[in-house]
Design a binder for these strands. Structure first.
Length: 721
DNA sequence: TTAAGTATGCTTTTT
DNA sequence: GCATACTTAA
């Protein structure tokens, strides 16, 4: 059996146990992805199961893509009809298809958290909610938890105590849910919620999908929430051909409703479960696993397991104490430069932190030291203002009910439809119970001034025209046409804000991304994608999905984002009480254990070395605080770590004594610059020169880069284009 | 109606 | 220390 030769006996058991419920408890780095891929291949090639009858749910789009690629390329299996994707993308697909049973049509918009925030703001105003008393973020979280527990507004008081506070939460929830339906829109939680309800309430649909998905595999099962549990259960409870893979020690998403009990109670929820443990690790040397085991053993609630490996290393993980956060970043940058001089690829180094805000100091250090880096997470490309604006134009073409998008662009770029006119439109819409778009098309009946009516008519006519265009033109052509007709580039050029040049570049990148999507789609399906396909796709894209992992750059990301990834050299930074564990998690023991798991996840990413860093003082906002080393560091036994103290002058002394390997920067020969010239920088990419101080190749240039950053850089570090 | 200037509040973690 | 929200002036 050639498929099995590359697997160890436990992994083989995962592949060969195809009938009935299987629980795979897979420790970090134990080859679980590999097992899932081979299991899928085995089902298709040996058991001759039609790929159409298999569902594989992964944690990220990227994992789904990789799984497909490896099946196609390494094993020569056509994945055309195989369903692989995240819960959210699989649910989107089902909901689009089954929309006749649902309160929306197949062109629904997917509201991301920014859209959600904006909607809440409107709702608060409309129904007069005091934001001080009911902080929007908190209420959104509560509502999200209701949804992921499958509690609809009508069931709210069946599960929640009735008091003044909950009455208001209910009011907001109900209003919000109706608003979404009116807008033909769903938020992330709705994708799961409606799918679960549909499968639960509609027996025909449930039968259809349980017959379709005869074999179901779920990765990262420890991070599923109740809605996800229910969806899987409804599909698989009759045939029981369900294989879930996970590691309770790596459960790090309880704050978004993930319930670790889904994996702990799997043997209770299904009958005659076959349990397989993968404890052999193929990623890290024993010294790192010793540390990891020592970290996680302080958690009370867990399946006992101990990772082991045959990989050995003379090096222990190193614990480094620094003076402050700048020294910390400086130290990491120096270490990475050292590694690079020993021929390590920068893409094999990662810096992991608890909060996104920590990235900035590292960015600064890497820029100063000319180390190429890539930040994963933070603000997603598709969430940038200029991109969201264009997306809003596209959204109303497929979903005219989407008032959120409509109002976003009704006066952008400015077309003289100001606040007053807009509130007039909204009043008219509310009075006649129309959607905003309907109100616009009947605007002459609104009683607004004739000037406003004319402007609105011109606007709606344009929209109608683009709508017709959208049915004929390929996506990229349509986007280009809209951008041209709203004169967006000109609008940006007219403003003197240097950021706008970066915006222009982003718009170009957006068009390129759309082109790429269309090409891939055509290759896969042989058909042109509809605009809806593209829009729903990008709503579910994360930053992790768009990064180029082979790019020669250090990766910076949160520990959450690092899940499922591996790197040769891992730098875990900010290991201080209050950051890890985070100050908001130290009171609750359950949350504290989750923080410890997060630390465990971070450490187990490493293939070769681990550096643990903490700073003696740290600046937050405008105050410098004295910190304490993380309790997770304190509780570890000393024998698992080598410790170094570079705080105070120690690190400076070290810096003087260590010769920095000077990496020569490749520069062009003689050159000089002019304003408006396009250049490229090895780290920041393409940009445009806005200002020049000094002369010749060493002139100091102010450059606006495509990534939105404005930097001053010496001319010799850039390439002319 | 908009642009510029000032105040505020924010930091967990994300599909 | 940044981005957003609000205030004021043109």
């Amino acid at each position: 059996m050639d498929l099995l030769t590359k697997l160890n006996p436990d992994q083989q058991k995962v592949v060969l146990t195809t009938q009935g419920p299987v629980l795979v408890l897979a420790g970090a780095g134990s080859g679980k992805t590999r097992s899932v891929i081979y299991r899928t291949a085995y089902l298709i090639t040996k058991l001759k199961i039609n790929p159409w009858n298999i569902l594989v749910v992964t944690f990220t789009n990227k994992a789904a893509r990789e799984l497909k690629n490896r099946l196609e390329n390494a094993l020569g299996i056509s994945t055309h009809s195989l369903w692989v994707g995240t819960f959210h993308s699989v649910c989107t697909r089902i909901l689009r298809y089954e929309n006749q049973y649902l309160p929306f049509n197949s062109n629904f918009s997917i509201f991301d958290s920014d859209d959600q925030k904006a909607v809440f703001k409107k709702i608060y105003k409309r129904i007069n909610i005091d934001i001080k008393e009911f902080p929007s973020a908190k209420i959104r979280h509560i509502i999200s938890r209701q949804k992921s527990s499958l509690i609809l507004p009508k069931d709210f008081f069946g599960f929640n105590e009735r008091n003044f506070y909950s009455e208001t939460v209910f009011k907001i929830y109900e209003y919000y849910q109706n608003f979404l339906i009116k807008n033909n829109a769903l938020d992330f939680d709705d994708l799961l919620l409606y799918t679960a309800i549909l499968l639960h309430d509609n027996e025909d649909i449930r039968k259809k999908y349980e017959q379709k998905f005869k074999y179901v595999m779920i990765d990262e099962y420890q991070d599923t929430n109740y809605a996800q549990f229910k969806i899987v259960n409804l599909i698989a409870k009759n045939h029981q051909n369900l294989c879930v893979v996970g590691d309770d020690d790596q459960a790090i998403y309880s704050w978004r409703g993930a319930d670790i009990r889904n994996i702990l109670n799997f043997e209770r929820d299904y009958k005659k479960v076959i349990k397989i443990k993968l404890e052999r690790n193929y990623r890290s040397p024993q010294s790192i696993l010793d540390l990891a085991n020592d970290i996680i053993k302080f958690n009370k609630k867990r399946h006992a397991k101990k990772l082991w490996t045959k990989i050995s290393s003379d090096e222990k993980p190193i614990l480094i104490k620094l003076e402050n956060e700048n020294e910390e970043a400086e130290f990491v940058a120096e270490e990475i430069i050292k590694l690079k001089s020993q021929n390590t690829s920068l893409s094999e180094c990662v810096v992991l932190y608890r909060t996104n805000a920590q990235s900035r100091v590292f960015e600064n250090a890497f820029i100063r030291k000319k180390v190429k880096y890539q930040i994963v997470g933070g603000v997603n490309f598709f969430q940038r203002k200029e991109i969201k604006d264009i997306i809003a134009y596209l959204r109303i073409l497929v979903n005219p009910q989407d008032s959120e998008s409509l109002l976003r662009i009704i006066n952008f770029p400015p077309r003289g439809i100001g606040k007053k006119t807009v509130s007039g439109i909204l009043d008219f819409a509310a009075a006649d119970n129309l959607t905003v778009f309907e109100a616009l098309s009947k605007i002459e009946k609104s009683g607004l001034t004739s000037g406003s009516v004319i402007k609105i008519k011109t606007f709606t006519e344009k929209i109608m025209k683009w709508k017709t265009d959208s049915e004929k033109l390929p996506i990229t052509k349509l986007i280009k046409r809209i951008v041209k007709e709203i004169d967006l580039i000109n609008y940006y050029e007219y403003c003197n804000d240097p950021k706008n040049i970066a915006r222009e570049e982003n718009i170009r990148e957006f068009i390129a991304a759309a082109e790429e999507f269309a090409e891939n789609y055509e290759e896969e399906t042989g058909e042109q994608p509809f605009l809806t396909d593209y829009l729903q796709n990008i709503s579910l894209q994360t930053d992790l999905d768009t990064i180029d992992e082979n790019e020669e750059a250090v990766k910076l990301m949160t520990m959450h984002n690092a899940k499922g990834l591996e790197f040769e050299h891992v730098f875990v930074v900010g290991l201080e009480d209050g950051l890890l564990p985070h100050s908001k998690s130290i009171e609750d023991n359950r949350e504290l254990e989750e923080e410890r798991r997060l630390f465990y996840v971070a450490v187990t990413r490493a293939q070769k070395t681990v550096h643990l860093c903490y700073a003696r003082t740290r600046r937050t906002f405008d105050t410098i605080i004295h910190t304490l080393p993380s309790r997770f560091i304190v509780e570890i036994q000393d024998k698992y770590l080598d410790s170094v103290d570079y705080s105070f002058f120690n690190f400076h002394k070290m810096k003087r004594s260590v010769k920095k390997p000077q990496k020569p920067v490749i520069m062009d020969n003689e050159k000089y610059f002019k304003i408006g010239q396009k250049i490229a920088h090895h780290k920041f990419g393409n940009g445009i020169i806005l200002n020049i101080e000094g002369k010749g190749k060493d002139a100091k240039l102010t450059i606006s880069f495509a990534n939105g950053k404005l930097k001053k850089i010496i001319g010799s570090f850039v390439k002319t284009l």
